[in-house]
Amino acid sequence: MFDSLLAGVRRRDHAFTVYRGDEPTDVESLFAAHGVEVDVRSLPPDGPDPFVLIETDGEFVGVIGAAELDGLLEPPIVRPGERDEVSAGYRAVFELFDDTLFSSMRRGALLAVSHEIEDRAYRVGTGALHASFQRFSAFRPQVDAYRHLAADTDLDVHVYGDDDWDPPAIPGVGYHAVDDDELRRHWVLAFDGGDGGQPCGLVAVEESDEYTGFWTDDDALVEDIIAAVTAAAA
């Protein structure tokens, strides 16, 4: 189910052009790691700092500094004071990178995308958030964050995973032990949008310490993810 969701994500025609001098930018290797090809154009020496032009289906959708985009795609550990800023950036990237496929993504980057989805759910404050942690023990570091999430909002939170640990009871959080091989291999997170929010989700599969998958703002695709995760837990 998740594998077919992964396979079914269509790739919109995003084009990235890096404007820079002779020195390659860090963000180019990130794009390469995500399997995204980029064009390079030379920047006049008296021009701006290196930046990335983003076009979708041939239309200009944005420009962002190469350093800023690098920071967005490979975020440092998110400290509480930086959370808002990081989220604002991710919102922009989400809007630009609808249905973003990624490969060889590191755990830290995937966590940052997950935080953005959780943050959206937090801001909307209603609806259902589905999170599959592969194993309940993997949920342990997130217990405090989810306790906040459930206490501060009317969110209906569902946590899925292999039953290898007894998570603490948290009002508003329901646990679903799954005995499903496919779900155990995938990192799944989906928010249904609640009242007036934008649904969003991600599906990633772990492959030798790295993750391949996609994140999406597509309503129908998010519905499919939620249907798949609830079916696997049933």
Binding site: L43, P48, F51, G62, V63, I64, A67, E68, G89, L96
Partner: peptide
């Protein structure tokens, strides 16, 4: 126009929009 937009975006550390 793209270059000027890149100038503004890198100066402001934000996304330059359409």
């Amino acid at each position: 126009a793209t270059l000027l937009c890149g100038y503004d975006a890198t100066d402001a550390s934000t996304m330059g929009t359409a």
